[in-house]
Design a protein around this nucleic acid. Structure first.
Lengths: 220, 220
DNA sequence: ACAAAAGTGTTCGATATACACCCATGT
DNA sequence: ACATGGGTGTATATCGAACACTTTTGT
């Protein structure tokens, strides 16, 4: 019993103060002209993760970003061409990273998750599930940092959380908890975009690993 | 690019005061004679979930138990016979349910998760991942109830938690939190196995759904 | 009578939340 | 000088953790 297997990658980024996903316009049937999540067939000699990584790089030109398997979707009639199951992944792109377009990227566009167009296949369901996972993981992991450049201000970090969760957070409480986690190293550098310069920080992933083991979570 | 797709189902139950998994002994190569997680190929016209449900029933004869997709494993060389990816599920069987063996069940045996034999393929990794998922979900869902018969005592419920988490819990704190959740209906029935009779309860899944929406969790 | 598991409250520390003002800079 | 976002502390409520004794029954 052979089945065709694809990977689809929901690619998130914060752009223009909104959480957006990268979508491509399909050039061929089925669903020609519809928007879809980037994806493609798994090759003979690559793992699922490698296939997802490859699709991600083809669309965005970025490597080494956060990439996590989401769920596998396998309803018999989800693809009109025949039996195709898809292993969905989601990726988080730092906001500053300019995408030097890969081959397929001509038709790729960013869409705010609040204003999605109709999507091909079961991609709306996949995208909603990815969004739910992202919101949940924000609460008990540090995935939020993956959406920022290496150096960032505390206000930028807070805006990432507010954008994804869709609500305002208290500045002092936010900073208190981040400080408690001890996962940021303050730099002797300041960002001068606004009026008063804001201190820059870098994320310390190693310190975080210990915290995760002890079950210390993000409680927003 | 066609790939063979299997589902494997890690079947958990509490038996003899231990968390156990159902394993089968392989009768054919590869890994002939080794123990393995029950599983098989996905049929042409069934969804992944249906395939997992079918495998579960073939092995155990039980239907309508808790069944959740775990993860998809797709390393190119994970199966010596060629390219096979597997979508892993895990299932929870109430402790009292006698398994009226399906066709394959002659070689099925229960093994405590603390004393696993060597397993075929990458099944040890799959099983460890399932165990980790189960332990995590115990903290913020009510999956624990799925391992008990319909009517159960509070001590039995606590033993499920202690068995899976591998540590003792405080009786008064445990009961206080369960009571807070308001998901149990006390019955006018008592279990008379020990010395002093223990009150029986039933789980109210509908009430739980509302709690989940509001983010009320199991904080053990 | 006694062994064994059932049942029941309070205290204390930690964590989450609510809330308001001064500061440094660019314009 | 002033508008803008950066930066800081305290008080209260809630939640989780620690902790011991009485009750009921079967033997």
């Amino acid at each position: 019993m052979s089945i065709r297997v694809t990977v689809d990658v929901v690619i998130f980024a914060i752009r223009e103060a909104a959480l957006q996903v990268l979508l491509i316009r399909r050039g061929v049937a089925p669903f020609k002209g519809r928007m879809a999540i980037p994806g493609g067939f798994v090759h003979e000699n690559e793992s699922l993760e490698e296939a997802a990584q490859r699709e991600l790089e083809e669309e965005t030109g970025v490597g080494k970003v956060y990439l996590e398997q989401l769920y596998s979707f396998g309803e018999p009639r989800r693809d009109p061409r025949g039996r195709v199951i898809t292993v969905a992944y989601y990726a988080l792109i730092p906001g500053d990273r300019p995408l030097h377009a890969g081959s397929d990227a001509s038709s790729a566009v960013w869409c705010p998750v609040e204003r999605l167009p109709p999507l091909a296949f079961d991609h709306e369901g996949i995208l909603c599930y990815a969004l739910e996972r992202l919101r949940n993981k924000l609460d008990y992991t540090t995935v939020g940092f993956q959406l920022l450049p290496r150096k960032f201000t505390l206000s930028e970090l807070q805006r990432v959380y507010e954008t994804i969760l869709g609500r305002k957070l208290d500045k002092r409480n936010f900073r208190k908890k981040i400080d408690l986690l001890k996962i940021l190293r303050p730099l002797r550098e300041w960002r001068h975009t606004g009026r008063k310069p804001a201190r820059l920080y870098v994320f310390l992933p190693k310190k975080f690993e210990k915290l995760k083991d002890r079950g210390i979570l993000f409680p927003f």
